[in-house]
């Protein structure tokens, strides 16, 4: 619906489009180093894409740029077909709040709050004041991640897998078009990792949420629609997985 005014929106609408994205750290200092050397990438609505690559290849850097947490030093970034370089901080924050959900390797939940309150956090950032709709949505999301019995527990009392599922529920609170997951299963045992992955996969199927999923786990990557390989800041392969 964000693209109603764009001709041809719908079938071939891309949630994310990168054109020659570059990112250098330490710009203007003697230690300036470019980490991303012109990344072209396009993700369609409903795609579940794995991002793989050796340590230090620039995966997290790319996710931060895509997530509007960091500005690229070159190239163009489109979210829902609209260009982002001209947006100011406030507009970026809004776009991020409405369109993008994050899950990181560590859950970064707020320890003093319950699971339900953590899930409501992005809605609170948007609305300011809690209301019944928010509470209902949080409960619904926690039901989807199978944490209904835990919804009023403090997150510090939960296991790593449970915490990461709360983080997934929180990332989906605003029903974002794009979910960015940076090694969300990296800290989890195999069973919990699979559990969290299946959760994202299920949301992706039901809500057509586009997912960009960084992982070192080949088994999980094989369950995605597509695997993008990145080495030294360049995409070296981009292939659909055989199903």
């Amino acid at each position: 619906m964000d693209n109603a005014s764009i001709p041809g929106a719908g079938a071939n609408q891309s949630v994310l489009r990168l054109e020659g994205i570059r990112k250098a750290y330490g710009v203007g200092t003697p230690i300036e180093t470019e980490v991303l050397h012109g990344i072209d990438l396009r993700l369609e609505r409903g795609e579940f894409c794995a991002l793989m690559g050796p340590s230090g290849s620039g995966k997290s850097t790319l996710l931060n740029v895509v997530g509007l947490l960091d500005r690229p030093t070159g190239g163009k970034l489109f979210i829902n077909d609209s260009e982002t370089s001209h947006l100011d901080d406030k507009a970026l924050t809004r776009l991020r709040g409405y369109s993008i959900g994050f899950v990181f390797q560590y859950h970064y939940l707020l320890p003093a709050f319950t699971a339900a309150e953590n899930v409501m956090m992005p809605m609170l950032a948007d609305r300011g004041r809690p209301n019944d709709d928010m509470r209902r949505r949080a409960e619904l999301l926690l039901e989807r991640v199978q944490l209904t019995p835990w919804r009023d527990s403090l997150v510090v009392n939960m296991s790593g897998g449970q915490q990461q599922r709360v983080a997934v529920a929180r990332a989906l609170a605003m029903n974002p078009a794009l979910l960015l997951a940076d090694e969300p299963t990296g800290n989890l045992d195999t069973k919990s990792a699979l559990n969290v992955f299946e959760l994202m996969r299920q949301m992706n199927r039901e809500q057509s949420t586009t997912v960009l999923f960084v992982t070192h786990n080949h088994d999980l990557a094989a369950r995605c629609d597509r695997i993008v390989q990145i080495v030294d800041g360049r995409i070296t392969s981009d292939q659909p997985t055989p199903h």
Binding site: G67, T93, F102, P122, A125, D126, G128
Partner: peptide, 16 residues
Amino acid sequence: SKEIGILRAMGTSQGQ
């Protein structure tokens, strides 16, 4: 700072 960072990532404004 980590929690603040994540709140910002989730769309919390500087003013908030």
